[in-house]
Design a protein around this nucleic acid. Structure first.
Lengths: 334, 334
DNA sequence: TTGAAAGCGCTAACAT
DNA sequence: ATGTTAGCGCTTTCAA
């Protein structure tokens, strides 16, 4: 079962491959008649362009590489959907690779994508990433880069970010308004800007209310359910909180575990707000107040930025996607 | 910033590109010394193979295409992880495309992958798919195909399936043993084998217990939360069930909504078992009994089957991955 | 408006 | 053990 090439079409029509190539590309320097003839014959023979050959010749491809820490996270899989929504209709193909939150795998992923001559790379850094030469390589090769969510600000590229600061600020302010007095914060690794911003949003709200940031109320690096459970227990022992803003829904889950164990009433005796609006957050009991990140929209913006880069070059805007507080049963206090 | 090619290496070393190519491929017909020289120079110059050129020349590539209905489903994203786990270390690259449960997008995805000359295609059919020429095309092109989960049995290819039948059988049997009398079933589209098998497993267990399959207790095509809610309300009106086996966790969620609305005690007055072990199933209240599908393992098996196809050709085994009943609070009755 | 010719970077048959 | 040569399928100058 040999594949049909432009040469086959050329022979059948007694023209040259060049003409066929041009006709197929819709080049107006080919007569309308010939173009029609070619298109029709192509369809008749079941011709399909050999993208590989084309991109070898052109030195670039319409394949875009995307590196994410994990594909099975609600946030990332929705960003991916958003990216595809824009990229596919525009004629681009998306290759997705997982770094698994691992620097070495991230480097390999970039190597692989470069070896495959992708037209551009979309990247969200792994937690581990603390060295950036592999990313500079992308820039140096002149390949468009769009960073999102977990970005490195020093690297020159388009960036699409969540408004983590405002999300955290609103969440904390909401806890304050609800009447909670001693509001704790379970954060993530502050080396990542996303988590640092959430901490800053928390701090701003606390300070605005005329209170002090107490170190004893803040716990860094607790983003899993287990870590959240342990962290809140420690904070409760040392700082007597009556509410907590968690930098992630999973740690909030751990907090709920601990509170139930202690038979504390939620939200009457203790308020909880998470971050990310994971699907489970509205399914658990009590339903979890949280911050929505608009992952899908982020994806569409990322893709749009990539296309601009691909077309015009040197589009280095930094976009911020708004976040939105969702108040549910874990924090609303009459 | 020009890329280093084998020609550059060849010139520097005063050998021919062929030698470099062979050396890089580890061909033993090149002297050990030359091989070392080449490898070192390649590293020195920062050489990176141009995969595009290689695969144009070889007429095939190490890129494997994978088409799934949705990437943001727990099951599929975990299958993907499993596939990557095997494929990446083996030197293959995975391109993931979503069909969005849409036949037209599925066709386009296949076209795209074929145009990109992928070495093989991994596929799980969309719900809509009822025509199969586009898949035959893959076979006719001689490109290895591995189907998983949502497969078409008439198409000749490797297949990896869940043991839906046994999962459903065990789930239903568990409800029977727990003492429930009138066990309903909310199923999916029976045109998909997966859902048909679940229905059959349910039927077998019911019959074995000496009861009859009552049409009024069975509801087809309810796999979302909303559909589950509506379906169970209808079934309760017409057939007086005291338990239900749902073909999916989402419909089970809808069932729980309805039961809570009616103030029925779970599991005392009504038992529920779902299917898929979605992450939320152990987070909701009551925790949901369900059937685990071992998505990750399925992925590793799929990848292994693909590699066998890639190497030996015509490996058309049909593998079945065991499922496992997980009993939680929604069904255990003392 | 079309053709001729070259070449993207690599591999593989066929020498030597 | 290495070199020569040809060509994968396409695009793109340059020429006509």
């Amino acid at each position: 079962m040999k594949r049909i090439t432009i040469n086959d079409i050329a022979k059948e029509l007694n023209v040259t491959p060049s003409t066929v190539s041009r006709a197929l590309a819709g080049n107006t320097r080919v007569s309308v008649k010939t173009r029609e003839l070619v298109t029709q014959k192509a369809k008749e023979l079941g011709y399909q362009q050999n993208v590989i050959a084309a991109s070898l010749r052109k030195g670039k491809s319409d394949t875009i590489g995307m590196i994410v820490p994990r594909i099975n996270r609600h946030f990332f899989s929705n960003v991916i959907s958003g990216v595809e929504e824009i990229l596919n209709p525009a004629g681009y193909t998306l290759v997705i690779v997982q770094s698994g939150e691992n620097l070495i795998k991230e480097k390999k992923a970039i190597d692989m994508l470069l070896a495959n001559h992708v037209g551009g790379i979309i990247l969200s850094l792994s937690v581990q990433t603390n060295t950036y030469q592999h990313i500079e390589t992308v820039i140096n090769r002149g390949i468009p880069l769009v960073q999102f969510d977990r970005v490195n600000l020093d690297i020159k590229s388009s960036k699409v970010l969540n408004d983590n600061f405002t999300g955290a600020y609103l969440a904390t302010k909401h806890l304050i308004k609800s009447g909670y007095q001693r509001i704790a914060h379970l954060g993530g690794a502050r080396s990542l800007k996303a988590y640092d911003e959430r901490f800053k949003g928390y701090s701003k709200a606390i300070e605005e209310s005329g209170r002090l940031i107490e170190d004893a109320l803040v716990y860094e690096n607790a983003i899993t359910r287990e870590a959240g459970y342990k962290a809140i227990n420690q904070v409760m022992e040392r700082a007597n909180p009556d509410a907590v803003f968690c930098a992630g829904d999973y740690s909030a889950l751990g907090v709920l575990d601990a509170l139930k164990e202690k038979n504390l009433k939620i939200p009457e005796e203790f308020g909880v707000v998470g971050f990310a609006n994971e699907p489970f957050s509205e399914l658990i009991h009590p339903t979890l107040s949280t911050v929505e990140q608009n992952a899908f929209e982020m994806g569409t913006r990322v893709a749009t930025a990539m296309i601009k880069n691909l077309e015009g070059k040197h589009y280095e805007e930094e976009e911020v996607i708004p976040t939105r507080l969702i108040v549910r049963d874990s924090s609303w206090k009459k």
